[in-house]
Amino acid sequence: MSASSPRSLHPTRLAESTGRAVVVFLVLPLVAIIPMSFSDTRYLSMPHDGLSTLHYWRLFSEPAWRDSLLQSVGVALPAACLALLIGLSFCLGAWQRQGNMVRLLQILMLGPLIVPGIIHAVAYHRALSFIGLFDSFAGTVLVHAIKGLPFVVLSVSASLSSVHPATLQLARSLGASPAQALWRTLLPQIRYGIAAGFIFAFVTSWDEIVVTLFITSRNVITLPKQIWQSLFLNLDPVVAALGSLALLATLLALLATSLSGSRLRSLPSPNTIA
């Protein structure tokens, strides 16, 4: 039945314009940082005399910013790998299992996503000091991996749910060993979920600030922590440059996924820092 309403209702119009205004409100701060990033002054302002790419260069030349960038990559890569290892193991093991137990374990795996960051901060501040990993590279990687774990579990189990339930048995009956069945039949089918989980875990670590503030001191200074520290001095336009680059990367990624079809779009949304 063709049921398009012929009558344009006034409240619907109002809702549509309010909705558009909300979307503008959502992107407003993201758009606002672009002109700020081209500021030609050392403090935050709109460009006065001309545009300048000064702050983009500072990002890669000033030691504090450059080192924090490198540290962030150095933490996020192993953290994402570790999260993937734990999350993938759990999902493969729990695949096709029913019952309250599995459900409870799944919720526990999502815990790091649900529990407020400040509680993690208190818990890990205490625990890492206790085992001597406070302000250490290893401790930071471990905590970031745990924070990224829920995203791996979410995206891998989402892609597992569309795999035929008898895949492994079928592969075994065709002569594959358990390991072969896993490696050659199951994993290829969920590779996009795995990739997505890895990306989310990486981004989570890359963005993580609340817990990092409480488990690090002078040794470990990730990029968000460097931003945080810089904000106590002044509103440095470097942050705007950094945000503009992140915006550019996100737009390119969104464009790529919408061009490459639906595969990568079926992903959970990332939860950055609260």
């Binding site: 979307v23 503008v24 959502l26 992107v27 407003l28 701060p29 993201l30 606002a32 940082i33 700020m36 935050l44 981004v203 963005d207 600030i209 968000p224 931003i227 945080w228 904000l231 509103l235 942050v239 705007a240 950094l242 945000g243 992140a246 915006l247 996100t250 737009l251 990624a253 969104l254 949304s269 990332p270 939860n271 950055t272 820092i273 609260a274």
Partner: peptide, 21 residues
């Protein structure tokens, strides 16, 4: 896209933008 975009930008950067604005 407008709704999803902020999810990918660090909340530090967003708050920074709000302060600046």
């Amino acid at each position: 896209a407008g709704v999803l975009l902020p999810l990918w930008i660090s909340v530090l950067v967003r708050n920074y933008a709000w302060i600046a604005l």
